[in-house]
């Protein structure tokens, strides 16, 4: 029987971590773009646009990410669309991330004082100009800590893609366990790698929040 050293295990896990990072980045960037669209729909003056964004967010926040992954993976395949695991994983995670980011950002825009809208409107700015020059620059400041905080949820969310067969850190953990029969060590290491990815983000989100609060107090 082959003996596996801790280094053998760790090396394989770290190689798979690349895919966790890539998938997280893709989901975060893609989700951010769609989240921005949702934000604009949510703030639109048209009722149908607001309702559309609201139901989208309700649907994706009210159902398990795992089910969204299953539907993307098994569901689309039935319509003759060949869906590889990475595509289903990326698609579901992007749509899921968008729902959460859209809702987080809406809260940040709504935290901007009404007077800012009125002042910019009185300067003859259109809706988009108001957003671009007055509201978003201020809302972005408030949005940074919760957005960084949510990136941790995205990284943890990528773990579920192992279930539909995308080989990232969690899947590698299962594969390595099956080869080494050392679940305690392997899953312990997997957890530590996730921790090493997520903890700096959690911490910086907290620090940013504290900084921002200080700035507020000085007003």
């Amino acid at each position: 029987m082959i003996e596996f050293t801790i280094w053998d295990i760790l090396r394989n896990l770290l190689l798979a971590t690349r895919w966790t990072i890539v998938l997280s980045l893709v989901s975060f960037v893609g989700g951010g773009m769609i989240g921005l669209v949702l934000l604009f729909l949510r703030l639109s003056r048209r009722k149908w646009a607001r309702a559309l964004a609201k139901y989208y967010i309700e649907l994706f926040q009210g159902t398990p990410l795992l089910m969204q992954l299953f539907i993307a993976f098994f569901g689309l395949g039935l319509f003759g669309i060949d869906v590889p695991a990475w595509l289903a994983a990326g698609l579901a995670l992007i749509l899921w991330t968008a729902a959460f980011l859209g809702e987080i950002w809406r809260g940040c825009v709504e935290a901007i004082a009404k007077g800012q809208w009125e002042a910019s409107a009185s300067l003859g700015m259109g809706r988009l100009q108001q957003m671009r020059h007055v509201i978003l620059p201020q809302a972005m400041r408030i949005a940074v800590p919760p957005t960084v905080g949510f990136s941790v949820q995205v990284i943890k969310g990528t773990a579920l893609t192992s279930i539909i067969g995308f080989v990232e850190l969690s899947k590698a953990g299962t594969v390595v366990t099956n080869a080494t029969f050392q679940p305690f060590t392997v899953y312990g290491l997997v957890a530590l790698i996730y921790f090493a990815l997520c903890w700096p983000l959690s911490k910086s989100s907290q620090i940013l929040e504290r900084k921002l609060n200080v700035a507020h107090r000085n007003h």
Binding site: T174, T177, G188
Partner: peptide, 15 residues
């Protein structure tokens, strides 16, 4: 808070 639920579950059940 900084590890996925899935891994916590696997650690408890398999580990």
């Amino acid at each position: 808070r900084n590890t996925p639920f899935l891994i916590q579950l696997f650690f408890i059940f398999f580990g």
